Deep mutational scan, measured.
Amino acid sequence: MNLTVNGKPSTVDGAESLNVTELLSALKVAQAEYVTVELNGEVLEREAFDATTVKDGDAVEFLY
């Protein structure tokens, strides 16, 4: 899956889609429990991480 992460191209191997929690784990995001996630310009509530799917071509920003 090809994404733009914090403005840079990134690839997650072996996945066509992941939820936000899985993406944080796959990318080994440090202190993931404290990060705010913006997906395609929309800031996500932490409670929505498990239910929100990240797909090929999406833009993700991790805000600390």
Rank of each mutant, 00 (worst) to 15 (best):
M1I: 12
M1L: 12
M1K: 04
M1T: 05
M1E: 02
M1V: 08
N2M: 12
N2G: 06
N2W: 10
N2I: 10
L3N: 01
L3C: 05
L3K: 01
L3V: 08
L3F: 07
L3H: 03
L3A: 03
T4G: 04
T4A: 05
T4V: 11
T4E: 04
T4N: 06
T4D: 04
V5R: 00
V5K: 02
V5T: 02
V5D: 02
V5Q: 03
V5I: 13
N6C: 13
N6D: 06
N6H: 03
G7S: 05
G7Y: 03
G7M: 04
G7I: 05
G7C: 08
G7N: 05
K8G: 05
K8Y: 11
K8A: 08
P9W: 11
P9D: 06
P9N: 08
P9Q: 09
S10P: 02
S10N: 09
S10K: 14
S10C: 15
S10G: 07
T11S: 09
T11Q: 11
T11P: 06
T11L: 11
V12W: 07
V12Q: 03
V12S: 02
V12K: 02
V12L: 11
D13H: 15
D13T: 14
D13V: 15
G14A: 09
G14K: 07
G14R: 08
G14I: 08
G14W: 14
G14C: 11
G14V: 09
G14S: 09
G14M: 10
A15W: 13
A15F: 14
E16N: 13
E16P: 10
E16T: 14
E16D: 11
S17H: 10
S17V: 11
S17A: 09
L18N: 01
L18Q: 02
L18D: 01
L18H: 03
N19G: 04
N19L: 07
N19C: 08
N19F: 07
N19W: 04
V20P: 00
V20R: 00
V20Y: 03
T21N: 11
T21F: 07
T21K: 08
E22P: 00
E22T: 07
E22K: 08
E22D: 10
E22Y: 05
E22F: 04
L23W: 01
L24P: 00
L24N: 01
L24H: 01
S25H: 12
S25Y: 11
S25K: 15
S25D: 11
S25G: 08
S25V: 14
S25R: 15
A26F: 14
A26C: 12
A26W: 14
A26N: 06
A26H: 12
A26V: 14
L27Q: 02
L27K: 00
L27Y: 05
L27V: 04
L27R: 00
L27P: 00
K28N: 12
K28L: 07
K28F: 06
K28Y: 06
K28I: 06
K28D: 08
K28W: 05
K28V: 06
V29W: 06
V29P: 05
V29R: 01
V29G: 05
V29T: 05
V29S: 03
A30M: 09
A30V: 11
A30P: 14
Q31S: 11
Q31E: 11
Q31P: 08
Q31I: 10
Q31F: 15
A32Q: 11
A32F: 10
A32N: 10
E33H: 10
E33I: 07
E33S: 09
Y34N: 09
Y34L: 13
V35T: 05
V35I: 10
V35M: 09
V35R: 02
V35D: 04
V35N: 03
V35H: 05
V35G: 02
V35Q: 04
T36F: 08
V37E: 00
V37Q: 00
V37Y: 00
V37W: 00
V37L: 06
E38A: 15
E38Y: 15
E38I: 15
E38T: 15
E38N: 13
E38K: 15
L39Q: 00
L39P: 01
L39S: 01
L39V: 06
L39R: 00
N40R: 01
N40G: 02
N40W: 02
N40Y: 02
N40F: 02
N40A: 01
G41Q: 04
G41T: 02
G41W: 04
G41V: 02
G41Y: 04
G41I: 03
E42G: 05
E42H: 13
E42W: 07
E42Y: 08
V43R: 13
V43A: 08
V43K: 12
V43L: 11
V43G: 05
L44Q: 02
L44C: 06
L44K: 04
L44W: 01
E45T: 10
E45S: 13
E45D: 13
E45M: 12
R46F: 07
R46L: 06
E47Q: 10
E47Y: 09
E47K: 10
E47R: 09
A48E: 10
A48S: 10
A48L: 12
A48W: 10
F49C: 04
F49Q: 04
F49H: 10
D50H: 08
D50T: 08
D50I: 06
D50M: 07
D50W: 07
D50Q: 08
D50F: 06
D50C: 07
D50S: 10
A51D: 11
A51M: 13
A51K: 14
A51R: 14
T52R: 06
T52H: 06
T52M: 06
T52K: 06
T53K: 10
T53D: 07
T53W: 14
T53C: 14
T53N: 09
T53H: 11
T53Q: 12
V54H: 01
V54C: 04
V54L: 10
V54K: 01
V54R: 00
K55W: 06
K55N: 08
K55F: 09
K55S: 07
K55C: 07
K55A: 06
D56Q: 07
D56R: 05
D56H: 07
D56M: 06
D56F: 05
D56K: 05
D56P: 07
G57V: 01
G57E: 03
G57M: 05
G57L: 03
G57P: 01
D58S: 04
D58M: 04
D58E: 03
D58I: 03
D58H: 03
A59G: 06
A59V: 15
A59M: 11
A59D: 09
A59R: 14
A59C: 14
A59L: 10
V60H: 02
V60Y: 04
V60P: 04
V60T: 02
V60D: 04
E61C: 13
E61D: 14
E61T: 12
E61V: 13
F62P: 06
F62R: 01
F62A: 02
F62S: 02
L63Y: 15
L63T: 14
L63R: 13
L63A: 12
Y64C: 13
Y64Q: 09
Y64L: 09
Y64P: 13
Y64M: 09
Y64N: 11
